[in-house]
């Protein structure tokens, strides 16, 4: 039960932060990516601000045996990069630029995003369902 409560707390604070930061506004995200237009640096402040508490959190995690609610901390990230990481990030970035929404803000804005927001979420879920066979094919092509 505690795990569920802390999950809801983290999700709620994440959503509040996304709204406060302006990242649920597609024009601010596209303004950041539009280096050759009316460039908007807000996203750099958001990312920088978000990384600061996590720098501290990873240091704390390194000195503790495990998370406060039991279990274990996430494994060290895989050092291998892989084709799926690069191809996936390029596809994600392209979609992010086209619409100005990434998964967090797309979900956070569900209550006020209107039809466009819901269509985006349904398309995103469809893309997630389509991903596993694509991943397998990329792996096979890379190994060949």
């Amino acid at each position: 039960m505690q795990r569920v409560m802390f999950s809801a707390l983290a999700g709620g604070l994440f959503g509040a932060g996304l709204l406060v930061s302006g990242m649920t506004d597609t024009t601010k995200v596209q303004g950041w990516l539009d280096v050759f237009g009316a460039w908007d640096p807000t996203l750099a402040f958001v990312l920088g601000g978000a990384i600061l508490p996590m720098l501290v959190a990873w240091q704390i995690a390194a000195r503790r045996a495990g998370p406060a609610l039991g279990g274990s901390f996430p494994n060290k990230p895989d050092a291998r990069l892989g084709h799926n990481l690069v191809l996936g990030s390029v596809l994600f970035g392209a979609g992010w630029g086209l619409v100005g929404l990434c998964p967090g803000p797309a979900i956070a804005s569900l209550s006020w995003g209107g039809t466009g927001g819901i269509v985006f979420l349904i398309s995103m879920v469809a893309g997630m369902l389509a991903a596993p066979p694509i991943r397998t094919r990329v792996d096979r092509l890379a190994a060949a």
């Binding site: 983290a10 604070l13 996304l18 930061s21 601000g49 998370p67």
Partner: peptide, 24 residues
């Protein structure tokens, strides 16, 4: 907007820190 971005960013990072340090 930059100040709000920084404040919102700190909230996002704190949320991530809670999820890591409590839920792992």
């Amino acid at each position: 907007d930059w100040i709000w971005g920084l404040v919102g960013g700190l909230m996002i990072g704190t949320a991530a820190a809670i999820f890591l340090l409590f839920n792992g």
